[in-house]
């Protein structure tokens, strides 16, 4: 089964991110950001790797500035790992697939 990348909005944020029983990777992006567009296929590939057992989500900072603000995002793309409702890791800038896998494995 191919897992889709979930678009996060204020409406589904609590349910999909905070209440998730899986580790969540948040990809903060915007349509006008070229490196964010380049990250998109990498993030999709990550979401298709079932062995990781994670949930992959995207947050459009243009549409959801409050969520971005709450995670202290001042540069995009930024990747945030959330476990049990709390941020456990954060990495700024475009990442390789390997680097993202390493990040979601971080405690």
């Amino acid at each position: 089964m191919i897992m889709a990348v979930i678009e996060i909005t204020k409406q589904n944020y609590e349910k999909e991110v905070i209440e998730s029983d899986k580790t969540v990777l948040l990809d903060f992006w915007a349509p006008w950001c070229a490196p964010c567009r380049a990250a998109s296929p990498i993030v999709e590939e990550l979401s298709n790797d079932e062995s990781l057992n994670i949930k992959v989500c995207k947050v459009n900072v243009d549409d959801e500035p409050e969520i971005a603000y709450n995670y202290g995002i001042v540069s995009i793309p930024t990747f945030v790992v959330v476990k049990g409702g709390s941020m456990v890791a954060k990495k700024v800038g475009l990442q390789s697939l390997e680097s993202l896998k390493e990040l979601v494995g971080a405690e």
């Binding site: 950001c33 540069s75 800038g93």
Partner: peptide, 17 residues
Amino acid sequence: FLGKGISFCAICDGFFF
């Protein structure tokens, strides 16, 4: 402060300021 207010890309991150 890399990624905490220091950026190398105006077109990407100007939005936040």
